[in-house]
Design a protein around this nucleic acid. Structure first.
Lengths: 230, 230
DNA sequence: GGTTTTAATTAGGACTCCTAACCAAAAAGA
DNA sequence: TCTTTTTGGTTAGGAGTCCTAATTAAAACC
């Protein structure tokens, strides 16, 4: 039987702050899941299927491999294959053998899929309403913290790597002293601030591991100190 | 074809900040889900089953109703009933008819369930590692923002209401001017700070709707201004 | 006492996940 | 070149997650 820990200010201690944060994130995860299923009922799509639709490009662009879809959703290829088959039966997705590699497939949105996606994307996350309860400054701080958490998870390979600034070869964190726009993007060759940090940038180009590590160290430590007013 | 929006600083605009925050939260939800299933493989428990185990009390305490379990997990009673049946077959949960209301059931952890829970809870969320990449101050700000988001979601009834400070009749937000410990808990009759804000307090007692609204308004607006230095 | 409501279960169906076994094409080695 | 791997994807099988709808039984209402 463990004695209860006391926090420094004599207020009876609960689990440490990070654990409560995790619990909070779990609650949001819960909401996302249950919302996803309610959505599913309204249209004919399950959460996974909707996510795949959001992922796939129109036929005019380069299609996605099945493996890429599986990675992005963090499921096994078997599961992804199931979901895709069901989407094809529903007429929302097209599949064709890849030209370059004859065992691979390329997946695209069909026109019907494109229309369906507009509907699905139209009612964007209910979560948005929750996040919009934060003021601007709070939201930006929240985004930055979120990016740090996600990146850490990615490094531990617990979450698929995505096209974020912090893994991009064009990203130069804290290149300027202007606190509103401390970062530099070498792709558009312009300074920008935390509010423009991206999670999925179309122009993303992965940095080599070495400079990625440096970039991350720089971003991570500066973002930390800046929050304390340094 | 839509023209690209420009943000005020001429950096090419992406979706607005709140949307990116939602995207980030969704990524974390993804990680939670896929981790849950990997867990499932190791032990014989699926994510839902593990969550139920975490929820149930030992036989020495008041058992939970099936409906309460369903609410807490944000699933239908049918789904909860399924999962509970499977847990009973595995010997981790005990069920008995409620004395007070003969159609209701009371659910408890069995001794085996208790042992299993220790295992499950032992490897707490991998997410913890991610959150611990934040420094102390950042973590506290993150927790506070999270509470605001969750509470907003609860008000919109998109997420089950939980035993948080902000819905408790003992909670007096911003009762003091001390920025380190601005709140007061009338249950323990002591001041406390953001770092002690709770998501699941054992002593929680719901406030009546009227004063709950006032408390929330006070917490919400002050937390906002405080962040901007007011 | 006779509705209505509420708590839980069951039935049925689509889908999500997994692991494992399997082809077939591509890459690697001898 | 002619095998081995390796890799991309599919299928089979099984437990579980979810839902809606129908059912049973007890409680609450009038």
């Amino acid at each position: 039987m463990k004695a209860k820990r006391e926090s420094p200010n004599s207020f009876p201690a609960e689990p440490p702050v990070p654990e409560r944060v995790v619990a909070g994130l779990a609650k949001i995860g819960l909401a996302l899941r249950s919302q996803g299923w309610q959505e599913a009922g309204r249209r004919g799509l399950t959460p996974t299927q909707a996510q795949i639709l959001r992922l796939l490009p129109p036929p005019s662009e380069q299609g996605l491999r099945l493996g890429e879809v599986a990675d992005a959703l963090a499921v096994t290829p078997a599961t992804a294959s199931d979901a895709v088959r069901s989407l094809i039966e529903k007429g929302f997705v097209r599949k064709s053998r890849s030209g370059a590699d004859r065992r691979a497939v390329e997946l695209y949105l069909s026109p019907a899929g494109r229309r369906e996606l507009d509907q699905v994307a139209g009612l964007p996350d209910f979560l948005l309403a929750g996040v919009e309860a934060l003021d601007e400054e709070e939201t930006e701080a929240f985004l930055r913290s979120l990016i740090k958490v996600i990146r850490t998870l990615q490094e531990a390979e617990m979450i698929p790597v995505s096209r974020m600034c912090v893994t991009c070869r064009f990203f130069r964190p804290y290149a300027y002293s202007d606190p509103a726009r401390p970062h530099h993007c070498a792709f558009v060759d312009a300074p920008f601030g935390d509010r423009d940090l991206r999670l999925e940038c179309p122009d993303h180009d992965p940095a080599d591991p070495d400079s990625a590590a440096k970039t991350w160290a720089r971003f991570s430590s500066r973002a930390t100190h800046e929050a304390t007013g340094l």
